[in-house]
Amino acid sequence: MPVATPPKSLLHIGLMSGTSLDGVDGVLARFGADGDRIEATLAAAYVPFPESLRADLMALQAAGPNEIEREAQAANALAVHYADCVRQLLAQGALDAVEIGSVGVHGQTIRHRPELGFTRQTNNPALLAELCDIDVVADFRSRDIAAGGQGAPLVPAFHRAVFGSPDQQRVVVNIGGISNISILPARTADATSGFDTGPGNVLMDAWIKLHHGRNYDANGHWGASGRVHAGLLAQLHDEPFFRLPPPKSSGRDLFHLDWLHAALARTGEPLAPADVQATLAALTAGSIAQAITTHAAGTEKVYVCGGGAENGFLMRLLQQALGAGVSVESTAVLGVAPNQVEALAFAWLARRFELRLPGNLPAVTGARAPRVLGALYPA
C-alpha cells in the first residue's frame, strides 16, 4: 500500500551557495503545520560548481568591465546548477515537482553594502521556476535592508526554532566563508541575538588557492603544519570591524586577499605561507571566541555548522580559545549535519514566506520590525 504524500505546503526545498563559492547544498524537508518545526529531512544533495563558474563568480566580487552582462550570464548558469540540485532531491525523495510547496534559494552574494542600503545576491529565480516547475522564493535579504536592517545574518531565527533549548543557553556558530553566531538563551525567544563575527573560511580558502591551487584546506592539514605568528595575528585583529557593536554583517567586500596582503606588509617580515594559513585559522577561531565571550558570557554549549565544522584544526583552535569550560561540537549531535543547516534555513524561510510569517529578527539585523522576507516567482 503506497505511503500517503504529505500536503504540498509541508514539503519545501532549500538551496544555499555560500561565500566559499564551491557549489550548492540542497535539502528537501517536511515541515509541521506550525511553520517552524521540521519533521524530517527527506533528501540532501550537493552540486559542485565547475571551475569556470567559480571563477566568474569570484570575478564579480569586485568591480570590473561589462559587469551587467557577466552577472546575467553567471545568474543563468547558477539557475541551471540549482535546478540540477532540485532534480537530485526529487529523485532521492521519489517525489514529483507538483508535490513541493516551494524552493527557497539564497542566491550568490556578490555585493553586501547595507551601509549604502543595498545587497546583491545574483540569481535568476524566474529561470529556476521555469526549469523546475516549482514556486521559487528568493531575495530574502532586501526587505530587511529596506526596513533599516543589515539583511544578515538571517539564520538566527531558524537556529532558534531548531536548536533552541528551554534548559540551557546555546550558541550556534556558522562557519562558512564568513562566520556568524546565534545566541540562543534558555529564557525568552525574544532574547535571541546574533551577528557576523568576521572571516570564516574565506581568507584560508583564498590563501591556499593562491599557493597550492586548492579550493580549501582539507581538515586544516596545511594550517596545522604551520605556526601562528603573533605579530600578523595582532595586525589582523586590529581591523575596526571586530570592535563594532552588533548588529553587524560583513563579506568579501572587506575580507579579501588585498586586505590580508596589507596586514602582511605591516608585519614587516617575510612569513612562511603555512604560518600565514595557521594564523588565519587562529583569526577565525579567535574572533568567534571573542564574540561569544563578550556577548554570550556563561555559554557552556557551542554547536558549529558550515564548512568550518569539517576543519579539525580550526575546531581545535576554537575549543582552545573558548577554554575547557565550554563544549564545542558539530550540529550533527543535535541531529542536523553541519553542511545541511544553511540550506535547511532557506527551506524554513520559504515556508515562513508561504505562511506570511516574519523571517528576520530585528535584534539581530537591526531592522525596524519583523518582516516577511522573500519574493515569489510562481511556477
Rank of each mutant, 00 (worst) to 15 (best):
118 F>H: 11
118 F>R: 04
121 Q>I: 11
121 Q>A: 12
122 T>F: 09
129 A>M: 01
130 E>I: 01
130 E>L: 09
131 L>C: 02
132 C>R: 01
136 V>E: 11
136 V>Y: 10
138 A>P: 03
141 R>E: 03
142 S>D: 00
145 I>T: 14
148 G>T: 08
152 A>C: 04
152 A>G: 10
154 L>N: 05
159 H>Y: 00
160 R>N: 12
162 V>W: 12
164 G>K: 05
164 G>T: 09
165 S>D: 15
165 S>I: 09
166 P>I: 03
170 R>D: 04
171 V>Y: 07
171 V>M: 12
171 V>H: 10
171 V>W: 06
171 V>L: 13
171 V>S: 12
172 V>P: 00
172 V>S: 02
174 N>M: 14
176 G>Q: 13
176 G>D: 13
177 G>P: 14
179 S>M: 05
180 N>W: 00
180 N>I: 04
181 I>K: 06
181 I>H: 07
181 I>Q: 07
185 P>G: 09
187 R>G: 10
188 T>Q: 13
189 A>Q: 13
189 A>W: 05
191 A>F: 06
192 T>L: 03
194 G>E: 01
195 F>Y: 10
197 T>F: 04
198 G>I: 03
199 P>S: 02
199 P>A: 00
199 P>E: 02
200 G>H: 07
200 G>N: 08
201 N>A: 06
201 N>C: 07
202 V>E: 01
202 V>I: 15
203 L>P: 01
204 M>W: 00
205 D>P: 08
206 A>P: 00
206 A>K: 00
207 W>K: 10
210 L>Y: 06
211 H>F: 11
212 H>W: 07
213 G>C: 08
214 R>D: 12
214 R>L: 13
214 R>C: 08
216 Y>F: 15
217 D>L: 10
217 D>I: 11
218 A>V: 14
221 H>E: 15
222 W>E: 04
225 S>V: 09
225 S>N: 13
225 S>C: 12
226 G>T: 08
227 R>P: 02
228 V>Q: 11
228 V>P: 10
232 L>V: 14
233 L>P: 07
233 L>W: 01
233 L>F: 04
233 L>A: 08
235 Q>F: 01
235 Q>E: 15
236 L>Y: 03
237 H>R: 15
237 H>I: 12
238 D>P: 07
239 E>I: 04
240 P>E: 09
243 R>F: 11
245 P>V: 05
245 P>Y: 02
247 P>S: 12
249 S>C: 08
250 S>I: 11
250 S>C: 15
251 G>Y: 03
253 D>G: 10
254 L>P: 09
254 L>W: 05
255 F>R: 03
256 H>Y: 01
257 L>T: 15
258 D>T: 15
